[in-house]
Design a protein around this nucleic acid. Structure first.
Lengths: 118, 118
DNA sequence: ACAATATTAAACCAAATGGTTGACAGTTGC
DNA sequence: GCAACTGTCAACCATTTGGTTTAATATTGT
């Protein structure tokens, strides 16, 4: 089972793979919202929406601040940056730019060695 | 169930969420490999590895070229670019740069209207 | 004290995921 | 022709996912 490298990326990409969760993130760009506000536009029960928020929390993409009986959620950017970094290391691939490929491969290898990631 | 927007991003992010599949992509940077070569370093059965490759194919991240009895796989960049674009629209968020936030939100909204994506 | 509000918890369910093994099929080389 | 190689398919299994509903908990306003 590939010795589970980089559980962070696993959780982050998994969190981003569901449209409801991406919708939640979009709702949180720039403003805090509580669970009721977040769940309102999603066509699903409140508990279902609440579970999606928790998936985002496990991925550290959302942080929760409890104020009385309401749970205010805000987006947390750093893990998105991590996902972006991972994608970035494939930029040459999608840009069809293979001139620097040897260096790219070495880069990836040393990154891998350094942080033990996949 | 949020009327399933953007099945592309769903498949792409889901594909990237498993370390074995990221390992496969990394193996494919710059070189083609057949399924046997791809599955060798993964600690799982051959059929399991084969299934992972198919997940990557459904996400259009990998293309297969059958040559005799061997299936040569190559990485396909465009979907990665799509994922990158999506992440990019959150760049201000992870850079903590909220000055331009109103424009960002309008941008996101018009993108959403234009392509009906989440 | 009580009703309304905001949220979690628990029980349940169907479907998808990630893995296995064993049998089958096409291709290659001798 | 036949053995070896490459890969799929089918059946099966355990776990996770994504959803529901009902009940419980905590906080607020009157």
């Amino acid at each position: 089972m590939v010795t589970d490298r980089s559980p962070n990326l696993n959780r982050i990409f998994h969190a981003l793979a569901h449209p409801a969760r991406r919708a939640i993130l979009r709702q949180l760009t720039g403003r805090e919202q509580n669970l009721s506000e977040l769940s309102a536009p999603l066509r699903m029960s409140f508990p279902a929406a609440s579970k999606h928020v928790r998936v985002l929390e496990r991925a550290r993409l959302v942080r929760r601040r409890i104020v009385g009986r309401t749970h205010m959620c805000r987006i947390e950017g750093k893990p998105l940056a991590e996902a972006n970094d991972w994608l970035e290391s494939y930029r040459q691939v999608w840009e069809g730019n293979f001139q620097r490929l040897d260096e790219l491969l070495n880069e990836l290898k040393s990154q891998e060695a350094k942080r033990g990631n996949t």
